[in-house]
């Protein structure tokens, strides 16, 4: 695996994504949910909302890097809050 040039932060990042996917699978198996309409302009399933949240988080991080001098944890904190809002009311 040396050729993949692993670092601790990227390993933690991918572990978090993998854990999220496993947790979502278990959640959906234990308590199946159908698509519903929240504040987003389209009906979404849990998986859709996770994808939208992750994609939005990637763009928020890029915007913070491009336009501000804020430390990256500020962007991460915004994204965690945004993800919770999208998953709950999106």
């Amino acid at each position: 695996m040396g050729w993949m040039a692993w670092t601790l932060p990227t390993a933690l990042f991918f572990s978090a994504i993998a854990l999220m996917l496993v947790a979502m699978t278990v959640w959906q198996t234990v308590s199946p949910a159908r698509e519903r309409k929240g504040f987003l302009p389209l009906a979404t399933s849990r998986g859709d909302r996770l994808f939208i949240g992750l994609l939005a988080s990637a763009y928020v991080h890029l915007l913070v890097l491009a336009l501000t001098d804020w430390p990256l944890w500020v962007a991460t904190a915004i994204c965690v809050a945004g993800m919770a809002i999208i998953m709950k009311w999106g």
């Binding site: 050729w3 993949m4 040039a5 990227t10 990042f13």
Partner: peptide, 25 residues
């Protein structure tokens, strides 16, 4: 995943690489 790993490092050769965080971005 390999590309993501590369994107946070300055890579000279497979054994000589330095973590640079989000500097490249």
């Amino acid at each position: 995943m390999t590309v993501v790993n590369y994107s946070v490092q300055d890579i000279f050769d497979p054994s000589t690489r330095y973590f640079v965080g989000t500097e490249w971005y």
